[in-house]
């Protein structure tokens, strides 16, 4: 019984430890403030199994800004004003946002079921939802562009260093 209790305690500590580490990782995702006079949008995608193999490519004015893999995010720095972002597979979804100077907004991509393949759905989100989603992996540099504005890993590190 004593041995069982010991194993139980060790397991509990392990689970507790990994949860704490997970929370710490999530807390490590820092989003820098946009450059003065610019606004920014954090696009993210939760790491669900549905459509995990599918990319969610975010476009503006027909140019791809970045792909969003499962559990990834990227930061788009852009001019203030109304912007329309789209995602497309067998159906197209458009999200318009009012980007404000010196502010950060959030948008989330989810893959929902389609007839032949999954359909990406882009929707407005919040900082709280982004933090709760524990999305902590930046999109790889190779998956960004050719549309401008998405911060590469080095850009993000530089912006955070100047924070």
């Amino acid at each position: 019984m004593k041995r069982f209790a010991g194993v139980f305690l060790a397991t509990a500590l392990l689970v507790g430890g990994s949860t704490a580490a997970g929370a710490e990782d999530a807390a490590q995702v820092q989003i820098p403030a946009p450059p003065p006079g610019k606004g920014q949008v954090v696009f993210y995608r939760t790491g669900t199994l549905m459509g995990a193999a599918m990319g969610c490519a975010v476009n503006e004015n027909g140019a791809k800004i970045s792909s969003l893999g499962s559990g990834r995010y990227f930061v788009l720095v852009t001019e203030p004003g109304r912007h329309e972002y789209s995602v497309k597979s067998e159906a197209k979804d458009v999200l318009a946002l009012e980007v404000e100077a010196d502010e950060t907004q959030y948008a989330m991509c989810r893959i929902k079921m389609g007839i032949m393949s999954g359909r990406p759905d882009l929707r407005p989100s919040t900082e709280a939802e982004f933090i709760k989603s524990s999305t902590d992996r930046l999109v790889d540099d190779d998956d960004m562009g050719p549309g401008p504005g998405a911060l590469r890993a080095a850009d993000l590190a530089s912006a955070l260093a100047n924070k």
Partner: peptide
């Protein structure tokens, strides 16, 4: 109204962005 989208099939929620 900057953006409005009705709730749709496959459980998609409605969206509304105002300015």
């Amino acid at each position: 109204v900057v953006h409005a989208k009705k709730a749709g099939g496959m459980g998609t929620a409605g969206e509304l962005v105002l300015a």
